[in-house]
């Protein structure tokens, strides 16, 4: 239908996680407000399993393009297939996760279709029949609400974890529509030679819990302590720019304006003063805990819970207490 809401299901060579389906949750709400349906679309080499799972997560229809060309994500092949589907069915809106793959694909697809897109949305609603998207700008000091009047579909990327996960029900029924679309090998611009997995998997964007350290951590070994707490909580380790620039921890851990933007459920900031560049990357976290020696540190203004104290004394006690309460 013309005003359907489409959700792109990302995968890595066929592998998905529950998070791949997260936008079907907000998609369903938008579709209900628009009086339409939420549909999924997926591109890959053999996607029956993914399609079935998308239906379980609430998609009423799944549109798919399949072929050996689409085994690995390539922006040109995928965006040609995506723009073919979106141009043929012209849904009201097409949502992508603001991950590297989702952003690459949304941008290239918008480029092919010839319109702009809204990126990293943190709010989406239907207002007077129109879809309005809200995003942060200037390091989260402002939010801007955008409409995309001329584009059909409106293309948007959505900050991961901004909306509730959809319910999964394996009894759901839905239709899978497969469309034939091929890209000639000669038209492919690139190929992936290899993927080198990071020694320590740092997936800050997907983490529910982040324990982060800043200048106040004082030394590289300080991050071992933070890592211990993160391990007990099943979380990831983040860092401020000051800690990264001091060489205490690699760049892939950096949260903030020139690092990653994250939205975990719990963010524990240790020895982080809370400069606006850092807040830009984490201020939309659900619960922020600040541990800092300086009672005047700006981080306390953004914190849900604050402890004025030395992280080196507080963290070991937190580890001990969590271990005993969580029976670990």
């Amino acid at each position: 239908m013309a005003n359907d809401v489409w959700v792109y299901i990302e995968h890595k060579e066929g592998a998905v996680s529950p998070m791949s389906f997260e936008l079907l949750g907000i998609g369903k709400i938008l579709a209900s407000d628009l009086g339409s349906n939420v549909c999924a679309f997926v591109i890959g080499d053999g996607v029956d399993g993914i399609a079935k799972e998308a239906i379980a997560y609430g998609a009423s229809k799944v549109f798919a393009v399949e072929g050996a060309t689409y085994k690995t994500f390539l922006p040109d092949a995928y965006s040609k297939a995506a723009s073919f589907l979106l141009d043929k069915y012209k849904p009201e809106v097409a949502l992508f996760r603001a991950t590297s793959q989702g952003t690459d694909l949304a941008a290239a697809t918008a480029g092919q279709l010839g319109f702009g897109l809204c990126t990293d949305s943190i709010g989406i609603k239907v207002d007077g029949g129109q879809v309005k998207l809200t995003r942060a700008a200037f390091g989260g000091n402002y939010t801007v609400t955008v409409v995309n009047e001329k584009a059909k579909p409106q293309i948007a990327t959505v900050r991961p974890k901004s909306f509730a996960m959809p319910e999964k029900n394996d009894a759901n029924q839905g239709e899978v529509v497969k469309e034939a679309f091929t890209v000639a090998d000669a038209d492919l611009h690139s190929k992936v030679l290899e993927f080198v997995k990071a020694a320590t998997t740092v997936n800050l964007v997907e983490a529910d819990i982040i324990v982060a350290g800043g200048r106040g951590v004082g030394k590289p070994e300080g991050f071992d302590l933070l890592k211990q707490l993160a391990d007990v909580l099943g979380g990831a380790v983040g860092a401020s720019r000051a800690a990264v620039d001091s060489g205490w921890i690699p760049y892939e851990h950096q949260v903030g304006q020139t690092g990653k933007t994250v939205k975990p459920k719990i963010y524990i900031a240790c020895g982080i003063s809370g400069a606006i560049q850092h807040l830009a990357g984490m201020r939309t976290s659900d619960c922020i805990v600040a541990i800092n020696k300086d009672p005047d540190a700006p981080i306390f203004k953004a914190a849900s819970f604050g402890i004025v104290g030395d992280y080196a004394q507080v963290i070991p006690k937190l580890i001990e207490k969590f271990k005993s309460k969580l029976n670990k």
């Binding site: 702009g116 402002y142 584009a151 203004k301 849900s304």
Partner: peptide, 24 residues
Amino acid sequence: ASTKVVEIAVPPPRGAGEILKGEI
């Protein structure tokens, strides 16, 4: 431009946090 900004706002401040005081 196909995308148009219809509203600019300052996000609501985060709720006043609680400083935990007392013995560690």
